[in-house]
């Protein structure tokens, strides 16, 4: 895009600046719209599985429900508890929301169609996703209220636990792809097993994908791991004291994070913008359509799990993270690097 703006007679610096801003808007605006629609989809799927109708009043088929909700919270009064730490209380939702958008900078939407094509893309995603916990922790502490505080404690322990196994899982992918660049990781999956595009068809990496999917649910605090906002014990968790737009920012950030996890599942294990099969006819469909379809499929899986699986108890969550996922993913790092060494993958 920089070349296009330079063609209009701008200097390189200005052209780069304008094209970057355009790129950010091109990602962030559809993402926000997507989040609004995905909240609607989530409620519809959840309702369908519970044999209910779900939102069906606002707009045709209830499609405008999320916008009505957005308008409602926008018109509400922002309430700051008297005992709260005001500055931090207001910053916390902004951190959650910003961090949820930041990681999208390195997700490739097509061959080379990525805002920041950095060499350490995957590490960037890890770094940004580890920042997400601060929004929750700061909210819990600054609210100066017990339930948000419990929620913040849980959130920090949960995120730390699952990040460890996610790190090992990603190392397996990186070992096989030989790069941290997400675009190159997608390219490495072309025709990985026979004509299937995607690491998931690989018998050594398939268990890694299953663990990544579950860890992703724990990392984004989705059901069955939504202990940070377990309404049966913690009211609404860290959001208890929030109202109006600061509450909505959590809502948006949470779903943007879920979409990001779906996009990572698609990019790292299911071939990203590549079509599912390595057939020339499938390449007629543009890459971003394939990526979008994969993201939507994974979002359906997330909703499906939310609608069917009961919530974990806290000690069970910790057991799964530390006693099951960590040893198994560590074992697979050894097995996969050993296999790659034995077959001369690095030569």
């Amino acid at each position: 895009m920089t070349e296009f703006f330079m063609g209009l007679g701008l200097s390189y610096g200005w052209a780069w600046g304008i094209s970057t801003v355009c790129g950010i808007l091109l990602i962030a605006l559809p993402l926000m719209l997507g989040v609004a629609m995905i909240i609607y989809a989530d409620r519809k799927i959840w309702a369908a599985m519970a044999l209910r109708r779900g939102p069906n009043v606002v707009g045709p088929l209830g499609l405008l429900q999320s916008f009505a909700d957005g308008l409602k919270v926008f018109l509400q009064e922002t309430i700051i508890p008297a005992a709260a730490n005001k500055g931090l209380f207001l910053i916390a939702p902004i951190i959650t929301f910003t961090v949820a958008l930041m990681a999208w900078a390195v997700i490739p939407f097509n061959s080379g169609a990525v805002l920041a094509n950095v060499n350490v893309g995957l590490l960037y995603v890890l770094a940004i996703s580890s920042l997400g916990v601060y929004g929750v922790v700061i909210a819990g502490w600054s609210s100066n209220s017990k339930y948000p505080f419990f929620s913040a404690m849980r959130a920090s322990a949960q995120m730390i636990s699952y990040e460890v196994s996610i790190g090992f899982i990603l190392i397996c992918v990186v070992l096989w792809a030989g790069t941290f660049n997400l675009n190159d990781i997608v390219k490495a999956q072309q025709g990985h097993v026979w004509i299937i595009n995607g690491f998931v068809a690989n018998p050594l990496l398939f268990p890694m994908w299953v663990m990544f999917l579950i860890s992703g649910m724990a990392e984004t605090a989705r059901a069955p791991f939504d202990l940070t906002e377990a309404e049966s014990e913690l009211v609404a968790g860290y959001q208890t004291e929030y109202s109006s737009m600061s509450f909505a920012l959590y809502w948006l950030g949470e779903y943007a994070n879920v979409l990001l996890m779906c996009a990572l599942n698609a990019t790292l294990f299911w071939g990203g913008w590549l079509p599912p099969l390595d057939l020339p006819i499938l390449y007629i469909v543009p890459g971003f359509v394939w990526l979008l379809l994969k993201i939507l499929f994974f979002f359906f899986v997330f909703s499906w799990v939310k609608a069917t699986v009961p919530r974990y108890r806290y000690d069970q969550l910790m057991r799964l993270g530390w006693k099951v996922f960590l040893p198994v993913s560590l074992l697979f790092v050894f097995v996969i690097s050993g296999y790659l060494m034995a077959t001369g993958h690095f030569a």
């Binding site: 580890s130 920042l131 922790v137 920090s156 322990a157």
Partner: peptide, 15 residues
């Protein structure tokens, strides 16, 4: 630096 210190060490500190 961000992953190790900001993402892990500082979270435990804060905890």
């Amino acid at each position: 630096l961000v992953i190790v210190y900001v993402g892990a060490v500082a979270v435990l500190f804060l905890f």
